[in-house]
């Protein structure tokens, strides 16, 4: 018979990750459904368009880029990470030996793995949408850039991972000690207030101008901080500790 004292945290987390990765897999299918629905809704409009008028030529480009797919993945990661911390999902933790800390560490690992798979799903939706357009719309395509560059792949992964981390932190904040709940509520209200009063005060231009790799490093650093905070809060809110 096993007991908590005989098992190291690493072993518990490993077991939990193995267990949860199968249990939470339906969240990835929801991403596929979400991407397919929006891909269908914005079938012919693309992510953007540009027009030119030169020498009696009215030229219009419909641009198909990854923006919409990334926004959806980011939204999905944020919501899924919050859902992972809800009571319904916490009940599943009882199926294996766990503590709140080990559960949060396992969730962190799962969010990172799912973020990686989400990038592949995102890319698949992008290419499948293009294929559908080329067969159904019968309009010519100009291929500017077909291949995902490794740095872009890393950037997409880091953005999805970041929002997953923020979602996990958010979810943990609201099940943590009272002072953390109050602090989070105050922070959210303050952020909303700043956004309404002075939206120009948040300027991401400097970050966007950085190369993809540097942007990814920035996002991953913030994600690491969010994950660490989420684990720290989970550790603080343990029911009983040995």
């Amino acid at each position: 018979m096993h007991s908590l004292t005989n098992l190291s945290l690493k072993t518990i987390v490993k077991k939990q990750v193995k267990w949860k990765i199968k249990l939470y897999i339906s969240s990835l299918s929801s991403l596929i459904i979400l991407q397919s629905i929006f891909g269908f809704l914005f079938f012919s409009s693309g992510s953007g368009s540009s027009g030119y008028g030169q020498q009696n030529l009215d030229l219009n480009f419909t641009i198909y880029s990854l923006d919409m797919h990334l926004f959806l993945s980011v939204f999905w990661a944020f919501i899924s990470a919050i859902i992972f911390t809800t009571r319904a999902y916490r009940m599943d933790d009882l199926s294996v030996i766990s503590s709140r800390t080990s559960s949060t560490i396992a969730n962190t690992v799962i969010i990172m793995i799912y973020s990686l798979i989400a990038v592949f799903i995102m890319a698949s939706t992008f290419y499948l949408q293009l294929l559908a357009i080329s067969f159904l719309k019968n309009e010519p395509f100009i291929i500017d850039n077909l291949i995902f560059s490794p740095t872009l792949f890393m950037m997409c992964f880091s953005i999805i991972c970041l929002f997953g981390a923020i979602g996990l932190l958010f979810g943990n904040c609201f099940k943590g000690p009272v002072f953390i709940k109050s602090l989070t509520s105050f922070f959210v209200m303050f952020a909303v207030f700043i956004l309404i009063i002075s939206p120009d005060s948040i300027n991401l231009k400097g970050l966007i101008m950085l190369p993809n790799f540097m942007m990814s490093v920035c996002y991953l650093s913030v994600a690491a901080i969010s994950f660490s905070l989420a684990i720290w809060i989970a550790n603080k809110s343990e029911v009983s500790r040995t």
Partner: peptide, 11 residues
């Protein structure tokens, strides 16, 4: 004239 452009990047 209208064309579709594929840009596997973030617009």
């Amino acid at each position: 004239v209208s064309y579709n452009r594929i840009k596997a990047s973030l617009g």
